[in-house]
Design a protein around this nucleic acid. Structure first.
Lengths: 218, 218
DNA sequence: TGAGAGTACGTACTGTCGGTATGTACCTGA
DNA sequence: TCAGGTACATACCGACAGTACGTACTCTCA
């Protein structure tokens, strides 16, 4: 069991991340000073540097919190679906919801890549929202006779993840968010329908080697 | 005609943007100091602040240069194609090339959104690479009987642009870039083939209203 | 043609902010 | 009960974006 002292320490740390998340969301990373964070949490820089190694570290803590909220929201929406295509639809809808949250937009999408650096950013995403998209994409594509390899599945996940992120961004800035979300659902649903049609028709699976040959033949 | 004095002034400005682009590319926005830029260009801060309103402004100048290089590269690759589907393929290939350039990755993709802010970032993109993608997507989709409205076409452009950006990013970080690029081409080509198939089969066009009804019926 | 105005910088300084060094009260376990 | 560690607070430093002001040079126009 946690001692009294640890509980106080935990609450200090939580207060710091609370304030940090709020200020990073409202003003962005660079426009948020550590002085403002510690003032908001009613502590001093000593406390902050006791719990975190620096500004980037407390940003990452806020980042993880925002991400995990988004992830659990999407995961909750997709669970219980048997049919992978329905699961994909539910996941897409939840993703579009999550990506509209101000904290997600500012901290994860806008500041995330530049503050954490590409590498760390990707690590973080790969075990949260990206992982869910990956799971859904694999569920949809391995349920076929195409027998795609891992690299090809990864490529599809990247493409869909990027498409959904961009779509989510456009939804977030549009005047009528719900109408925009419906358009996105319709468009992606349409793309999925095309894939389904190819599947039903017994089309050849996507093959990089063939693309290469087609190219070199020019 | 430009006077001797203006020519000197222009060369100073160009030197500043040259150095800024290089340093921003190598070390990122925040790790690049104005002192380093002016030292590299062999001038002082007075000169920099004479030509630019501040750090963000000189970043934007570098940003525009990198973007316009990428844009002209893609535009050059797509011109001359009659068939919109072939044009799309050529554009995709050029896009995957452009997005691998270090300057584009660091300045446009990584630092761009957070430094310029979402709004300005989108303005910038909308009149460069995004515009080309938009043109291609419209060429492909308006060449059909689906008769999609503007908002729907925009949605498709956003989705494809996001997909291609993400795909480009994954190509850039992969160990075997050319193999990864081929996979991306195969995957997106496959998605396009699905759309083509739907078109040939005379499928119903994507319709947000129908998506809404399908949702509310649950 | 020369004097005033504006341009294209250079120099010196300031405020802010991330980070550090050091001190201190308190708790915990032996 | 006391030594050591924890959880902070305080005071300070260096880096850096931005500013104020000075200056040399150039172009224009009377």
């Amino acid at each position: 069991m946690r001692t009294r002292r640890q509980r106080f320490s935990d609450s200090t740390k939580r207060a710091l991340v609370d304030v940090a998340e709020r200020l990073f969301t409202e003003h962005g990373y660079s426009a948020t000073s550590l002085d403002a964070i510690v003032a908001g949490a009613d502590v001093t820089k000593g406390a902050l540097y006791h719990h975190f190694s620096g500004k980037q570290a407390i940003f990452e803590a806020a980042f993880e919190r925002v991400e995990s909220r988004a992830t659990s929201g999407i995961a909750h929406a997709t669970e219980g679906h048997q049919d992978p295509w329905l699961k994909a639809q539910a996941g897409l809808r939840a993703f579009l919801e999550a990506v509209q949250e101000p904290g997600y937009r500012q901290i994860v999408i806008s500041d995330g890549p530049s503050v954490l650096g590409h590498e760390r950013y990707r690590e973080q995403e790969e075990r949260s929202t990206y992982a869910i998209v990956d799971e859904i994409v694999r569920a949809v594509l391995t349920d076929t006779e195409w027998d795609l390899d891992d690299a090809m599945l990864d490529t599809f996940t990247r493409i869909f993840f990027g498409a959904m992120s961009a779509a989510g961004g456009s939804v977030a800035v549009s005047e009528d968010a719900s109408a925009a979300a419906l358009r996105v659902e319709a468009a992606i649903g349409f793309i999925l329908a095309g894939l389904q049609r190819l599947l039903e028709d017994g089309a050849e699976p996507p093959d990089p080697a063939r693309t290469a040959r087609a190219t070199s033949r020019r």
